[in-house]
């Protein structure tokens, strides 16, 4: 009883891959600016990083708009329900070929651990990166005429926060890449994010029902 369902809509996929690309590029240029290695050259790295940062912020604006107009933001409301079961699955069940403890549906396509992680990213890490990044770009030393309220005397707090956030994002990216392979089959998650469609169990009726509920909620 499974059916190929559109689980990731076109904008969602565009946003996801664009974000993936930008985060990867921002990390690559950012850690060069941090002094971790040399690749593009410091000056280029700064230029590219700034351009990519503008791209990322524009993307965020579009994504926020999309999430609120479609009501998809509800997917990310964290819940403690089944979180233990989900943890147990990744720590033990997965080795015994157990089933995923939570059912993936169009209305609830994220498992409880995903909800929590993505919520943390969207509400904490990304805002920290954007705010500290904007301060990096627009801070003015007090003696230079500019926007008085963003005068800062030291870059240290800004710099350290921006680095800490970047490290969290890199750690997330690595884990995320690995967890792609933990779908129904090793490639089913990747395929879903590329095509938008995934074979979901008993989805036929609920899919229609859910989209109706969603629409009525808006």
């Amino acid at each position: 009883m499974s059916k190929n369902v559109l689980i990731y809509k076109s904008f969602e996929r565009f946003w996801h891959w664009m974000q993936a690309l930008l985060i990867f590029f921002l990390a690559a240029t950012g850690f060069e600016i941090h002094g971790t290695y040399t690749f593009f050259g410091f000056e280029n790295a700064v230029t590219y990083h700034n351009i990519a940062a503008y791209g990322f912020m524009i993307l965020i604006v579009f994504a926020v708009f999309w999430h609120f107009t479609t009501g998809e933001w509800r997917q990310y409301i964290p819940t403690l329900e089944h979180i233990r079961a989900q943890l147990n699955y990744y720590l033990f069940g997965i080795f015994k070929n157990a089933h995923h403890p939570t059912k993936k549906t169009v209305l609830s396509k994220l498992n409880p651990l995903q909800k929590l992680t993505y919520f943390g990213l969207k509400m904490l890490v990304i805002p920290i990166m954007v705010i500290s990044g904007l301060l990096y770009m627009f801070y003015r030393y007090p003696q230079n005429q500019g926007v008085e309220s963003i005068n800062i005397d030291s870059l240290e707090i800004v710099g350290v926060l921006h680095t800490a956030g970047a490290i969290m994002l890199v750690a997330f990216l690595i884990t995320h890449l690995y967890l792609i392979t933990t779908g129904e089959t090793p490639t089913s998650n990747l395929k879903a994010m590329l095509t938008g469609y995934e074979e979901l169990e008993g989805e036929e009726e609920t899919a229609v029902e859910n989209s109706e509920t969603l629409n009525s909620k808006i």
């Binding site: 600016i33 941090h34 002094g35 410091f42 030291s154 870059l155 240290e156 710099g159 350290v160 680095t163």
Partner: peptide, 10 residues
């Protein structure tokens, strides 16, 4: 006496 990106880190 100051933090400079590329040179300094915590």
């Amino acid at each position: 006496d100051f933090y400079m990106p590329g040179r300094d880190y915590n």
